[in-house]
Simulated assay, not measured.
Amino acid sequence: MEREKLYSYIQGMIHSSTKSPKCMSISTVKVANLLDLQVSEVEQALKDLVANGKLHSSKLEKPPYHEIYLLP
Rank of each mutant, 00 (worst) to 15 (best):
P64S: 00
P21W: 05
V31N: 07
S57R: 15
V50P: 06
E67V: 14
S25R: 08
L37F: 00
I14E: 12
I68Q: 13
K54M: 07
L37K: 06
I10S: 15
Y7W: 14
Y7N: 01
E67R: 00
L49W: 11
H15W: 11
V42D: 01
R3T: 09
E43S: 03
L60N: 07
P64A: 04
P64V: 03
S8L: 11
P21I: 10
L60R: 11
A32V: 01
S20T: 04
I10T: 09
I10F: 13
T18A: 15
Q44R: 11
L37V: 03
A32D: 04
K22D: 10
K47G: 06
M1Y: 04
V31R: 04
L37P: 00
P72E: 02
N33S: 05
V50Q: 02
K47H: 03
M13P: 07
A45R: 05
T18E: 15
S8E: 12
Q44N: 05
N52S: 12
G53W: 04
T18M: 09
K5W: 01
Y9D: 08
L60P: 06
Y69R: 04
Y69H: 08
P72Q: 10
L35G: 08
K47W: 00
A51R: 04
T18Q: 11
P64Q: 03
S25E: 09
E61R: 08
L71F: 13
K19Q: 11
K22A: 14
R3V: 14
K47N: 01
T18N: 14
E61W: 02
L60A: 07
M24S: 11
K54N: 07
K30G: 01
L70N: 12
S40Q: 03
D48Y: 08
M13S: 09
G12C: 13
Y69D: 12
D48H: 10
E4R: 10
H56Q: 15
K30Q: 09
A51P: 02
Q38E: 04
E67Y: 02
E61H: 04
A32W: 01
V42L: 01
S17K: 15
K30E: 02
I10M: 08
K19F: 14
Q38S: 05
Y69N: 03
L55P: 06
S16K: 15
K19D: 06
N33F: 04
L49V: 13
I14C: 14
C23V: 08
V31F: 11
P72F: 10
H56G: 06
E61C: 02
T28I: 10
S27C: 10
H56R: 15
H56P: 07
E2S: 12
K19M: 12
Q11G: 09
A45P: 00
Y9M: 15
D36I: 06
L35W: 06
G53M: 13
L71D: 12
K30V: 02
Q11I: 03
P63R: 13
S25I: 08
K5I: 02
S16M: 14
D36R: 15
K5F: 02
H15R: 10
D48P: 00
G53I: 02
Q38A: 05
K30F: 03
Q38P: 01
E41P: 00
K54D: 06
S8K: 13
